[in-house]
């Protein structure tokens, strides 16, 4: 059976990206995850390469992003039409043009000045503020007198991008878990992958409906196992354009906790007829935690995003 083309549309990554999506060659290169999401296919490798490339662009690792996109372009991914490949080709050309310009700029001080102004302008678009007393701050990149770690604006943007990526990955896995065409082995593997997105096995998913008083709360693994029993066929998920992302707050476990709220339409078809559809809004706790990485014998502190508790509210059903 030909695997259906799973179109996942529209994650507005963050306002920074949307406001700076139109880059001139002298500006800091920005990736709009919204566009990248819209060219996802049923090929997991393709999706991963694109999402990672987007993250690398926003981290300023343009050469790495370039290589990842070339890898994606060379995959034997089957797409329903040529537009996803065309998009990747355009992105490869855009990065190439940018890298070429950077090379020229290194030898031309006038261009360097222009670039530094452009970068300053783009950083002013950040929406993340806070105080050093336990809430993440955007401007500093240091440990303050009380030992509370603060992060740069770029790091903050990266954390929010990572949070959205993890949620997007979770939604992909949820689709795979509930998809009728997934074998038991694939579904079980997907459940394990989904569990790895959380910082522990002790989180819960609370499911409620605006039409019912009852709220059900499941441990995450049990929630995924229940999804497997649903056995949907041809699942389509559409994301609302808007998402709310919170600041991160330091909790007693020394991890920073924040959350993302978004809205989705879920449609399952059978024999080209809609068998089930609903609208949900999900709130997902995102947890920022440190880990140490040893590079060439030197330990460095890094931060990664994991998921926490999830609240799913059903606002409409057919």
């Amino acid at each position: 059976m030909k695997k259906p083309f799973l179109a996942v549309a529209a994650i507005l990554i963050c306002t920074v990206c949307s406001l700076t999506a139109q880059n001139s060659p002298t500006q800091n290169l920005i990736c709009d995850l919204n566009q990248y999401q819209s060219v996802r296919t049923s090929d997991y490798r393709w999706n991963n390469l694109l999402i990672t490339a987007c993250r690398e662009i926003n981290s300023g690792h343009y050469e790495t992003a370039y290589k990842l996109l070339v890898d994606a372009y060379n995959l034997d991914t089957k797409t329903t039409d040529g537009s996803p490949k065309e998009f990747v080709k355009t992105e490869i050309e855009r990065i190439k043009k940018f890298l070429d310009h950077q090379e020229k700029a290194a030898a031309d001080p006038a261009v360097i000045d222009d670039k530094s102004i452009a970068i300053t302008a783009s950083t002013d678009n950040s929406g993340y503020t806070g105080s050093s007393d336990g809430t993440l701050k955007k401007d500093d990149d240091a440990v303050d007198a009380s030992g509370v770690r603060t992060f740069s604006e770029k790091e903050m943007n990266d954390f929010h991008v990572k949070g959205l990526e993890k949620i997007s990955e979770l939604e992909d896995l949820i689709k795979r878990i509930g998809d009728k065409i997934s074998s038991t082995a694939i579904a079980e593997h997907s459940i394990e992958n989904a569990m790895n997105l959380f910082d522990s096995d002790e989180h819960f998913v609370q499911v409620s409906s605006v039409n019912k008083a009852e709220k059900m709360k499941y441990p995450t693994r049990k929630y995924f196992e229940r999804l497997r029993a649903l056995n949907y066929q041809n699942v389509f998920i559409e994301w609302a354009e808007f998402q709310y992302t919170s600041d991160f707050i330091l909790a007693p476990d020394s991890k920073y906790h924040g959350y993302i709220e978004f809205s989705q339409k879920f449609v399952a078809t059978k024999d080209d007829i809609i068998s089930y559809s609903d609208k949900t809004r999900k709130k997902v706790e995102v947890i920022l935690m440190p880990y140490t990485k040893t590079v060439e014998g030197k330990e460095t502190e890094n931060w990664d995003i994991f998921l926490g508790d999830i609240s799913v509210v059903q606002t409409g059903q057919k």
């Binding site: 819960f204 609370q206 709360k217 919170s246 707050i249 330091l250 909790a251 007693p252 476990d253 020394s254 906790h257 924040g258 959350y259 709220e261 709130k283 706790e285 926490g308 508790d309 999830i310 609240s311």
Partner: peptide
């Protein structure tokens, strides 16, 4: 001192205090 394990998340309000 705050317990490192037994506490309500600082963003519990966002998830309707489900914890």
């Amino acid at each position: 001192t705050f317990s490192k394990k037994y506490f309500l998340s600082p963003v519990s309000h966002a998830l309707d205090f489900m914890d």
